[in-house]
Every structure is written in structure tokens, then in C-alpha cells.
Amino acid sequence: MRIEFELDARSIAVEIDPGESLMTLLRRIGAVSVKDGCARGDCGSCAVRLDGRAVTSCLLFAAQADGRRVQTAAGLADATGGLHPLQRALVDAGGVQCGYCTPGVLMAAMDLLDHDPDPGEQQVRTALAGNLCRCTGYVKIIEGVREAAALLREAEHG
């Protein structure tokens, strides 16, 4: 079947197998920031935003994206490759080590920051509970997300 959807502000029209997962489709068409970790919804490394909400793309059928908006970590940087404040803050805080979990963490954190511009530590922990990281021990990721929230609030209010 053929589906159309928005991927990081680009229009995509693609032939899919209706049994394939959204993760499989995205990686097949080159969106390889979406990581294939556990493929069963446990690790969060395949997280994307579907109509704004962060979800594990391995547990969605690709067909479910038809007519909808999909965002990945690759869409965060600006046109010249300049990092998004969340990416910058995560790097600066030491919240990126091997990097495998990072795209999924970014998507879960973006969903959080859209709903809560000033999250406390507990809110960040809850929002990232579905993203496993084996390097950082999480503390630096949490600090990075909270720092990003502060930067984004500053940018908003000047």
C-alpha cells in the first residue's frame, strides 16, 4: 500500500508493506537516527514523535503514520546543522556518551518540554522512564534536559 506522511517537515509518499513497523520503514528510507534497539518497546531508542507525542516506532505499524506528522531527532538541528538548544545542553551536560539512546531521549524530552516548559527532576525522570541508557547513569541526561528547559524559556522571554 501507499502512504503519505510528513517526516521532519518533508512530505513523504512511499510504498509500504502493511505488516512492517514504522521503525523498519523509517530506517529503510534513510531516517537512521531512529535506532533499532530491542524492537519490543522496552528500550526507547526508536522513539519518534507522532503528531507531537513521543512513541516507540517499533510498536507501530508503518501504516498508522499515514496522513500524520512524524518527527525524528534528525529534524532538530537547523538548516546549517546548528544544534537545537536541547541537543547542545545534552552534550554540554555530558548526557551523550555512546549516543545510541540519544535520538530517542531527545524525542521523549521534546514531548515533555512542549507540555511542561519548566519540569522538575521528577517530571524529567518520569518522561524518560521508557528510554534506557547504559552509559551515563541518567543524572547528566536529566541535568541536560532541565538546562535545555531553562535555555528555551530564556529564548522565549528574552
Binding site: G41, G44, A47, L50, R53, A54, V55, T56, L59, L60, A108, D111, L112, T126, A127, A129, G130, N131
Partner: peptide, 9 residues
């Protein structure tokens, strides 16, 4: 319940 990623879906 699960995680946010799961509850969103």
C-alpha cells in the same frame, strides 16, 4: 503504567 512512550500509544 509502562512509560510515557507506551502511554502515548
Amino acid at each position: 503504567f509502562g512509560s510515557v512512550l507506551h502511554r502515548n500509544q
